[in-house]
């Protein structure tokens, strides 16, 4: 069941990612975006910018898209704590798909690049989200990159 693009609501009854109390987000704390970040010269600034990690427990929306013959999810978007590492997303997706953790699954942001497992989800969301969603494509074989 794919959710339409117009639907930005995150189901409250869905399975959300495990929230682990983040411990080290203080460096990412910041006030409201000011001049260098809010440059009007940037035509399509990700709307996610509003979700800066002022709150250590801030969550961001991740939207999964299957590629090729990868199995699809019953629910394709989830909220995740911004301070989590990308590894959490990988492990979560494997669990949802009933994959073993050792089985290979390839995850990409925006069908473009594979983030390192230690990258911070909040950073990826801030830099690469579209309409507030971090798009993650997944595939059973190396698809991009």
């Amino acid at each position: 069941m794919q959710s339409g693009d117009a639907n930005f609501d995150v189901p409250h009854h869905g399975k959300f990612l495990v929230t682990v109390n983040p411990t080290s987000m203080s460096a990412a704390e910041q006030g409201p975006a000011t001049s260098p970040l809010a440059s009007p010269s940037v035509p399509r600034r990700p709307s996610s910018a509003a979700t800066s990690n002022a709150e250590p427990n801030a969550k961001v929306v991740v939207r999964f898209r299957a590629t090729g013959n990868a199995p699809i999810l019953k629910q394709n978007f989830y909220k995740i704590t911004a301070s989590q590492k990308f590894q959490t997303v990988i492990s979560f997706l494997k669990k949802e798909l009933h994959y073993k953790q050792q089985q290979s699954l390839f995850l990409y942001v925006n069908a473009a690049f594979a983030p390192a497992p230690d990258e911070i989800v909040g950073n990826l969301h801030k830099c690469f989200a579209t309409d507030g969603n971090l798009i993650i494509n997944y595939s059973t074989t190396a698809a991009w990159g």
Partner: peptide, 26 residues
Amino acid sequence: PRFVPMRVYVAGCAVVQEPVSPVDGE
């Protein structure tokens, strides 16, 4: 460039990567 690819490392903190524009458009 739209944003500058940059990461900032602060001891004991998470890596910082922000969508930083290199120029004031006005």
